[in-house]
């Protein structure tokens, strides 16, 4: 079933004008903000396809920045999000580009902290406010933000998936979906886990303590969305 429940039909509650070009864009921005894990000092926003051509008319730029400010899809501040973000110290840069391989409503977000981390996140808005996160820092992934998501960056090494699933299982966290990608055998890898429950901080610490794990991120929009 493409649509799983009543609130994917009645909902989301959102600021207009478009569920794909506005609400979906907010959710991609917000997912990126949660994955980045902090207020980004700098954000470069690259629109592709239909987003590139109509983003001004649909307020897609305001929507993505609203998401980066951690606003929900129905937060009325989205209308003035760019001014509010700049006031708060977020430097914004917008670009448009084409990539025939991408979904028509795709945006790439490069988030930076001064003297700190940089994350590059690719997402597509696939309709009705639904999104797919398709790339993190060059890894090909696919997840929806309709479930809590745990992202583990690690070295490609035997047993990693088993370790992660065991640690989650011991904490009573059920896995609904999993996605693994690597940049070559024995190289850098990422494991994305969609869960039914929030992952307790203590479970994340156990995962962090594993050898070859570099970074563990938990992002959850479900507690604030329908």
């Amino acid at each position: 079933m493409r649509f799983k429940d009543v609130f994917s039909i009645i909902g989301p509650s959102m600021v207009g004008p478009s569920s794909s070009h506005t609400a979906g864009a907010v959710r991609i921005g917000r997912a990126a903000r949660r994955i980045f894990g902090a207020f980004p000092d700098q954000a470069e926003i690259v629109f592709y396809g239909s987003f590139a051509e109509t983003y001004r008319g649909h307020g897609t730029d305001l929507a993505v920045v609203g998401g980066l400010m951690d606003y929900a899809t129905d937060d009325i501040r989205i209308r003035s999000s760019m001014a509010l973000a700049e006031e708060a110290g977020m430097r914004l840069k917008f670009k448009t580009a084409q990539n025939a391989a991408y979904h028509p409503n795709t945006v790439m977000l490069k988030l930076k902290k001064h003297g700190g981390r940089e994350d590059i996140i690719l997402g597509a808005s696939i309709g009705g406010g639904n999104v797919e996160l398709l790339g993190i820092n060059g890894f090909d992934v696919k997840f929806t933000m309709n479930y809590p998501v745990l992202i583990v960056f690690h070295k490609d090494t035997p047993g990693m998936v088993a370790h992660i699933s065991r640690i989650l299982g011991e904490g009573g966290v059920n896995i609904g979906y999993m996605d693994v990608d690597r940049k070559g055998r024995g190289g850098e890898a990422v494991t994305v886990v969609e869960t039914d429950e929030a992952v307790p901080e203590e479970r994340m610490d156990v995962i962090r303590s594993l050898s070859y794990v570099h970074r563990v991120v938990f992002a959850d929009l479900t507690s604030e969305e329908a």
């Binding site: 989301p12 207009g16 129905d74």
Partner: peptide, 18 residues
């Protein structure tokens, strides 16, 4: 019209048909 003004609506089932 509220939707087109970036006002708050509920997608039923979409924003275009709200």
């Amino acid at each position: 019209e509220v939707n087109a003004s970036m006002g708050r609506i509920v997608a039923t089932p979409t924003a275009g048909s709200c």
